[in-house]
Design a protein around this nucleic acid. Sequence first.
DNA 1: GTAACTCCTCACGTTGCGTGAGGTGCAAGA
DNA 2: TCTTGCACCTCACGCAACGTGAGGAGTTAC
Lengths: 249, 249
Amino acid sequence: MTLPPWKVGELASRTGMSVRALHHYDEIGLLSPSLRTPSGHRLYQQADIARLQQIQSLRLMGIPLEEVKQLLDGAAMSPREVIDLHLARLHEQLALQNRLAERLQALATHLDMVESASIDDLCQIIQVTIAMEKYFTTEQLEVLRERRTSIGDAHMHEVRDEWNEIIPKVRKAITDGVDPASPEIIAIARRWKALVEEFTGGDPKIAQAVRTMYEHEGPTLQQQLGEVPTPDMFAYMGRAFAALEQSSR
Amino acid sequence: MTLPPWKVGELASRTGMSVRALHHYDEIGLLSPSLRTPSGHRLYQQADIARLQQIQSLRLMGIPLEEVKQLLDGAAMSPREVIDLHLARLHEQLALQNRLAERLQALATHLDMVESASIDDLCQIIQVTIAMEKYFTTEQLEVLRERRTSIGDAHMHEVRDEWNEIIPKVRKAITDGVDPASPEIIAIARRWKALVEEFTGGDPKIAQAVRTMYEHEGPTLQQQLGEVPTPDMFAYMGRAFAALEQSSR
DNA sequence: GTAACTCCTCACGTTGCGTGAGGTGCAAGA
DNA sequence: TCTTGCACCTCACGCAACGTGAGGAGTTAC
């Protein structure tokens, strides 16, 4: 007893595919029904249905139709090769997507820092976000992200304000030729150090990376952050830190 | 002093884009040069270049061109919304991709278990792999995967062989009406238990899940694995285990 | 007989360009 | 000045896997 063949609609509803998909499979020669009615209606027999089930299995693994076709038509590819190849491609894609997701996450936290919503600012912040990838390792970025969320939004602005207060003072001290070992500069150095440690979590590698970044990307960062330390400030404050060390002994 | 405008080729090489991409941006109205020579050559001015840089920034975040366009043309979307929306989409995709990758990993280890390379077998194994997702949690699947790799290929075949030896014996014992508390059945129960514990790592939840799976998917699994325990065997062996417990006291 | 389905074959749309095809503009050497 | 060669132009197809009509014919139930 042979079962009557199925028409597309029936096959579609029974297999959960769309009629269009079955048409498509026919078009590309992946699954052509072995029978047609005189008027041209597709009739699928047992063998066709079996093939469709195989196709569905392979599609569940995300294998592209062209490769499914080659596999089922017995081309020169072992299942193992196909799976391994596909897995490799998937991992590549995943790596890319993950990098994108990390970027977007970083961008989102950066967006929380500033209150602006202009497109120009957004693009600037993207630049900063991308630039940071060059100066910090993935783990360091992770640490920074955590620091930022733990510091919180409100305090973040206080920190910004404090930098905006300190940096002009340092600039003025440099142009005025004030001795970095003088008491008022040492007081500033103490505040500076506290700010840095709060931001970097005390990791000297991160502090160094921050410094390198400011040296290379100063102008870009300045547009977003406001006051930003320049290389000569780092040098000057270095001497102030030395004096701070001495005085605290 | 205004700089001379750039032609496509020049803009392309300086920004790292392809000429075709710039043409495309022009076609879709994303970036149309503000000038053309009388002969129709595109001339990009400073404003155009700035816009291109913004486009590049947004594209680095994987934002689709249509949304980039709307953003830059000041449509009703805040940067925040766009980023959040895009991040959500990305996470969705990542979840899908990760599931696929897990499936493929599981499939690969399953492929290592059997030596066959036929397409039919591959599709069967895919079915099994998918079916397992219904009976085990993600963590359980992870545990099983680790068990399998730690057991190793060679020993895996010994295990299979032992099942193929034990199961017919149990079947025969059932049809022959042998008492499950009889010594030979208790001996078999001891081996059975050892096999199960080796496979499940001693986790009773996994053992239960395996049993449920065999009850529902018996025929499918049998085609791939060979001998497979049936519900009546589980019941029978349950009584044998009880006898084993008693005797070992 | 006709209404209501189901089926058929085009054929465009999707995303972001790559890759020619065939033709013109422009700067420099013979 | 003429030619050579490079840069530029505008179509237009291709990709992956179908979704979504459009317009028309076959099938089935009342």
